[in-house]
Amino acid sequence: MRILFSDEKFFDIDGVYNSQNDRVWAVDRADADKYGGIKQKRKFPQKVIVWLGACSKGVTPLVILEKGTVDHAVYIEKMLPVALKYGNQVFGSDWTFQQDGATSHSHHLSQQWCRDNFPSFTDKDHWPGNSPDMNPLNYSIWSELVNAIDWNKVKSKTTLIQQLKSSVKKIRESVVFESCDSFTKRLCRICQNDGNYFR
């Protein structure tokens, strides 16, 4: 319960849509289209990268990048200091920082920054590279943020950023706490499943 999890996610002005998960069951194509079978997307939608941290005490301030990608230099300059400040504020000097295996995270300079600054952190050799079942942001909190956004108001990158900033405040504390609290149970289930995904 003293772990600060973190993750990045792309958001674009077309909203969140996953063609593998968002399905419409219908008798024919016309019926499917009537109930949302067609989802229009722009060829090159405006997008931002969002970084967020979460722990049993709540969520960090959002870090929003309007341009570019997250390399190790951006990660060290813009995101890690936010995590450090928040973790120290809510836990004092006894907590662990957790990141995934993204290239910017596993870069030797990022690892060194974490080693030098965080009271404790899980290094790149002790966390599975692709572990969505183990990060509360992936299995719960991002969905909470996505559902809090009023997508009808998102018309541009500016309105997307406004909605992200206002919607992060709507993430329910109970969801954050329960998501982080379930981490150890999920970890046990993954171990019982020999490291494989579970349903």
Rank of each mutant, 00 (worst) to 15 (best):
I141G: 10
G58T: 11
V168D: 07
M1T: 13
Q162D: 14
I3S: 05
F97D: 11
H126K: 15
D28A: 02
K155V: 09
R172A: 14
T96K: 00
K39Q: 05
C55H: 03
F121P: 02
I49V: 12
W127G: 03
L164N: 05
D100P: 11
I76K: 10
G87M: 03
K47Y: 03
C180T: 03
I49H: 02
F198A: 01
D7K: 13
I38T: 15
V146N: 07
L65H: 09
A148L: 07
E173D: 15
T159R: 01
P61Q: 13
M79Q: 12
K155D: 12
V154G: 02
V59G: 02
K169W: 06
H107T: 03
D150Q: 08
W127C: 00
D123Q: 04
E173N: 14
N138K: 06
W113C: 05
E173M: 14
R186D: 08
D150T: 07
A54D: 04
D116F: 03
G87A: 07
L4E: 01
D194F: 10
C188G: 13
W95A: 01
G195E: 00
D28T: 09
K78E: 12
A102I: 06
N147D: 13
I76M: 11
R199S: 13
P128W: 08
H72Y: 15
D123M: 08
S140W: 08
S110V: 01
G195K: 08
L160N: 12
Y139L: 09
N196F: 01
F121I: 09
G129C: 12
S104Q: 10
N193A: 15
E178L: 14
M134Y: 06
T158E: 14
W113Y: 15
F44C: 14
D133K: 10
S143W: 12
K153T: 13
D123G: 08
W25A: 00
V27K: 14
I171C: 04
Q40E: 09
L164T: 06
S182V: 00
Y197G: 12
H107N: 15
F198M: 10
K169F: 06
Q163F: 06
L109T: 11
S131N: 00
F91S: 07
D100T: 03
S143D: 10
A26G: 06
F97P: 06
W151C: 01
T96N: 04
K153G: 15
E77Q: 15
C191Q: 14
Q89Y: 01
W51P: 04
L187V: 01
D33K: 15
A32G: 14
C55D: 09
W142G: 03
S56M: 12
H107F: 12
S156Q: 11
T69I: 02
H107K: 00
F10H: 14
A102P: 07
R29P: 01
T103C: 07
I76S: 04
K43E: 05
I76H: 05
I64W: 08
K9N: 12
A148D: 10
P45C: 08
S166T: 15
F97W: 12
T184I: 10
W142Q: 03
T159D: 04
G92S: 00
N117I: 01
H105K: 00
D125W: 10
P132I: 05
